[in-house]
Amino acid sequence: MDGYRVMRQDDNGNRFRVADGLGRAEADALAAEFEARGHKQFYWVEAGRSRTPQPPAGEPRYVVGGALLHRGRVLAARRSGPPELAGSWEFPGGKAEPGETQEQALERELAEELGVRARALRPLPGSWEVRPGLELRIWAAELLSGEPRPLQDHSELRWLAAHELDDLPWLPHDREVLPHVAALLAAG
Rank of each mutant, 00 (worst) to 15 (best):
Q104I: 00
V63F: 10
L160R: 13
L143I: 01
W170H: 09
G146D: 03
M1S: 14
A187V: 05
G115K: 05
Q152S: 10
A118W: 02
L136T: 04
G3P: 07
D11H: 07
R61L: 13
A47T: 08
L144H: 09
E135R: 15
E164D: 08
Y62G: 01
D166L: 07
E147H: 12
E142T: 12
L110W: 01
Q104C: 01
G3W: 06
R49F: 01
L75F: 02
V64T: 15
D11K: 06
L151E: 01
L184M: 06
L106I: 02
P150F: 00
A29R: 15
P98Y: 03
G58A: 06
G87S: 12
L185I: 07
L22R: 10
P123I: 00
R117N: 02
P98N: 08
I138D: 14
V18D: 10
A31K: 07
A19G: 05
G38L: 11
D166R: 12
G13P: 02
D153Q: 14
F91G: 13
R108F: 08
E142G: 15
L160P: 05
E176M: 04
G58R: 00
V130Y: 15
R71D: 15
A76F: 01
A186F: 00
L134D: 05
R137N: 02
P148A: 12
G93Q: 10
A141Q: 11
M1W: 04
L106G: 09
M1T: 10
H70M: 06
P82T: 04
E35N: 14
R17E: 13
E135C: 11
S50V: 00
E112K: 09
L151T: 04
G87A: 07
A67G: 13
E112M: 14
A161S: 15
L69D: 04
R131D: 04
H180D: 11
E164C: 08
S88V: 00
E109T: 08
E97F: 08
S155C: 14
G58K: 00
E59L: 12
L75I: 06
R137I: 01
E129H: 05
L30W: 05
Q54L: 11
